[in-house]
């Protein structure tokens, strides 16, 4: 286990350094996120979004920003021809964990940009920042956990970017719907007691199952 964690840390550092040099994924994601929020603000100018609509719009922006960049860690290996080298250098579990940690970092960056910008551009008040932070953290784990193995699969396909969005959206729709439901109290929706908490627990269970399944399936996908 110690060896896997060390390997994962090295994979994570490699990806972070590579990203720091090129800034490909981060700049694409952040530009997309800023442009989407600005577009939403422009299109919806003057419109009074209720809290549920606000939660739905912000999570859709987060999802599509994630879809533009979360395939990058594996697609980059395929495009630069370093897949075989990485397969020789690290165990599959370490690769999965390192790439998952890197995706989690990208998701955190997306959320740190999108949520404050969304509040500022659309004039949406966050009533319970602590709850929103908890939901955002669950969302980041959920989206990056599910997309790590999907990105590894898509890296072997043709037309990778479009296939990634097609493959990821239906798998991520259940947590997205639940995240909208769970975000309600953060934006002030008065819902029945316990409902957002149930939704958050459901997101965590769903993500937990997908992450465990991905952990076991990844070697079969990666080594093929």
């Amino acid at each position: 286990m110690k060896g896997t964690l060390r390997g994962a840390w090295i994979v994570f550092l490699k990806d972070a350094r590579s990203e720091f040099r090129t800034r490909y994924a981060l700049s694409a994601i952040l530009l997309f996120a800023v442009a989407s929020v600005a577009l939403a603000g422009f299109v919806l100018r003057g419109a009074m979004l209720d809290e549920r609509q606000a939660a739905a719009v912000v999570w859709l922006i987060v999802f599509f920003a994630a879809a533009t960049g979360l395939a990058r860690p594996f697609v980059q290996e395929a495009e630069s021809g370093t897949e075989l080298l990485l397969r020789q250098a690290a165990r599959p579990e370490a690769v999965w964990l390192g790439k998952f940690a890197f995706s989690l970092g990208l998701m955190a960056a997306i959320e740190l940009i999108v949520f404050p910008l969304f509040g500022a551009f659309l004039g949406v008040d966050v009533r319970r920042p602590g709850w929103l932070a908890a939901v955002a953290a669950a969302g980041a784990v959920s989206l990056s956990g599910a997309t790590t193995i999907l990105a590894a699969m898509v890296a072997k396909a043709r037309a990778r970017s479009s296939v990634f969005a097609v493959a990821a959206l239906p798998v991520l729709l259940p947590p997205l719907v639940l995240l909208v439901e769970a975000s309600g109290p953060a934006f002030g929706v008065s819902v029945g007691a316990g409902q957002p908490r149930e939704a958050l627990l459901a997101v965590m269970s769903y993500s937990g199952i997908l992450i465990v399944l991905s952990w076991f399936l990844f070697p079969g996908v990666w080594e093929e």
């Binding site: 193995i149 999907l150 699969m153 072997k156 396909a157 493959a167 239906p170 798998v171 729709l173 259940p174 769903y206 199952i209 997908l210 399944l213 991905s214 399936l217 079969g220 996908v221 093929e224």
Partner: peptide, 14 residues
């Protein structure tokens, strides 16, 4: 085959 098999197992969760 390998990727389809893995996706079929992932897809059963949603």
């Amino acid at each position: 085959a390998a990727i389809s098999a893995a996706y079929a197992l992932i897809a059963i969760v949603p």
